[in-house]
Design a protein around this nucleic acid. Structure first.
Lengths: 243, 243
DNA sequence: TCAAAAGTGTTGTAACTACACCCATGA
DNA sequence: TCATGGGTGTAGTTACAACACTTTTGA
């Protein structure tokens, strides 16, 4: 670092969150409707400024997660996406945003009791179609978050973060299908996911869902990386280019 | 974002660079010896503060690249690693650093004419062995940069950024061996690298290097992602755990 | 006993590892 | 003609996609 007498210019630091969840087998992201300028009326990712100059950036992400989505750190994946620092990204001044990717299990009523009443789970395809305009550079942050999630499903146990304590293999497959945006062969999926040692372990019990044979229940294993990886078929990228 | 009357605390924004290159077939990273406190006498990654509040963060990375390593943007890979924002990471105050990963081809005299006379290309194994202490949280940033480079060699054409305009397949293999820290079978490497369409294209000419049959020269192709990927053998992680 | 959902077996193929082998050059 | 580095051929194996098939439940 330079060590002159010259003083570097201060900037404001914000944290933005790309929070994904699965609702009725479809991928959703949490968006907040902006009540004031700039970008009033548009949708934005949840986030906020650093509380004080002693607050850790990761702690600020956890705090916003609690304030805006009523989500606790337990049973939840949180990782940094990167910093977004174009000089004109916020018309109010020089704001650098550190973006985080969060994955939450589907919740019955995700926003009850939250003071962020304007928060809404939004289907990801609606954003990819261009139906929904995002404020600031949040479309870029959202896209980066989606791509990161898609990549990490291949080699990490991230998918279990979308599920509750116990889950069936079919529920896990729905995670992959929703995030990757394509259909998978359930029979091959069964074997691949069980061949990846430490990814999921049997919970011993079963779940009956009305019709058909009951499904075995599993819980997340202790491994965070899985081998062999669940490689995303080439069709995924093709479909992405059409969108 | 919160929109109260309350004003968020300003922070200082720095940029740090993990610059890798290959020198005599070994992976090196650029380090600077700190002349003043804090951490005087220790080694640190090159970097510096934002010049003014209109400077783009990526532009600041390019500027530091020029100032500290005399490297231009052409024929050079530069990507963001992420933000490092622990409250106590810099004893002088609240500094958030945005780290970048840069890959440069091996240069004959990389630092001639630079005002950063204390800059030195340091062998990566020396840092992994713990022989060299880094200032601030720069060891963490360095490790993240190395892991990112190792990962990206598998599925992207990043390796060509270590090479000059034209290169032999053997030179390209030395890149993989140096970054991954292991030996590869040259015969299988030849075919894998040529089977990945668009990764490298023949330059038409040959290079004679004293003894033996002359090697065909190649240049970087137009594809940034390669298929099938060059998967890193499992031995890589095993060896990493020993280090 | 039929529909529906869960789960298993099999076959052909792509891509890999490991290794033997041939080619072109300078000394 | 030999050492040296460049490059190709082949066999056994792993991991996979694409299917047909069996099992267990509720109605």
């Amino acid at each position: 670092m330079s060590d002159d007498d010259w003083t570097p210019p201060p900037v404001l630091l914000a944290v933005d969150l790309v929070i994904f969840t699965l609702r009725v087998s479809a991928l959703h992201v949490l968006l907040i409707e902006r009540g004031i300028e700039p970008f009033q009326g548009l949708w934005a990712l949840p986030g906020g400024f650093l509380n004080n100059d002693k607050e850790d950036v990761l702690s600020a992400a956890h705090r916003e997660l609690k304030e805006e989505a009523n989500l606790d750190a337990s049973r939840l994946h949180l990782e940094q996406l990167g910093a977004y620092g174009a000089p004109d990204r916020d018309p109010r001044g020089r704001v650098i945003s550190v973006a985080y990717l969060a994955i939450a299990p589907g919740l019955p009523e995700p926003l009850a009791g939250t003071d962020a009443a304007r928060a809404t789970w939004t289907p990801v395809p609606d954003i990819l179609d261009g139906q929904i305009q995002l404020a600031f550079d949040h479309h870029e942050i959202f896209s980066d978050g989606l791509e990161r999630a898609r990549l990490k499903l291949e080699r990490s146990a991230l998918a279990t973060a979308f599920c509750r304590e116990t889950f069936t293999i079919n529920e896990l497959q729905q995670v992959y299908e929703a995030v990757w945006g394509l259909r998978l062969d359930l029979r091959n999926f069964y074997r691949k996911v069980q061949a990846a040692t430490g990814f999921i372990v049997p919970a011993g019990t079963e779940r009956r869902a009305g019709k058909g044979r009951p499904a075995r229940l599993f819980k997340a294993g202790d491994r965070t990386t899985i081998h062999p990886p669940l490689v995303r078929p080439a069709a995924a990228t093709t479909r992405e280019e059409n969108a």
